[in-house]
Amino acid sequence: MSACRRLLAPYLLTVLSLGPGCSSSPSGFRGETSVPGVTGTPLSPQDMNGVSGGRDDQENLWRAIVRIRSVGGSCSGILIAPQAVLTAAHCFCPVTQAAFNRKPCVKKATVISHFYLYRPEQRAWEAVPETSPGDVIVHEDFTAQRNDRGFVDPDKRVADLAIVALEHELSGVKPDVLLRSKEVSEGDELTVIGYGPSAHEAQNGGLRRYGTNEVSAIRTLADQRGREFRFNGSGAHTHEGDSGGPALYIDEGKRWLVGINGGYAENGTQSWFTSTSSYYDWITAQLEKTQKPRAP
């Protein structure tokens, strides 16, 4: 469907044969390269609307799911206390082929919540942001590393969680999820929300989208404590910009937080989540630390 995508080098192998013509990209961006591509037919729609398989959050059902911007890039996250956002650690720390080093992890981030104001009769709408700066607290056990092909090594990644402690509350946004200590099961239907685009490599990110999918696999991480679960096959999937966004288990209207998006595989047809139930104690301990005690 499109050309000149910026892909990580390994994808070159699969895309090279598709066609001629694309400009060269600037040098000096690690992992960035421009590849020959195809423009395809501009008249046939392919992209789906939503976190792929999902939809835009026009009704503001998921306001507690926020966008997180730092010099490390752009991610998603979820407000779990009035001044605490849970997200993925890899949003703030460089993950390279070298052994993991937490020193370069960024310490500050800006958290943005969007309220969407729709006026359907005018086919008009507004995206109204609300922001707070915050301090980044990366899980002390977080580690991750890329393999020699540039992909993330699933066996060298643990505790991919971070908290952003907000300077002030986001006006009009309340945390509305419960932390679940019980692990998800295969076949559980979960809701995923994030600010990524509607398809792998699509270029329409920046809007909050949501969709559902079923847990297809669960496994224990290399630290023997943490777990992660995955979605395969059809249903909503997550893409660039969705990292750090939540997977929620909805039960009789209650929203249970069960996972934080850790990445995707197979060109965006698999989504990987860190199980928050397996890090339940760490999250609750951080909440106690970050939430200022209320005056009597």
């Binding site: 890039g73 890899h90 990524g196 910009g241 595989a265």
Partner: peptide, 11 residues
Amino acid sequence: ARETLELGVTN
């Protein structure tokens, strides 16, 4: 899948 895991951060 294990060979193609990517981080979903917007650059």
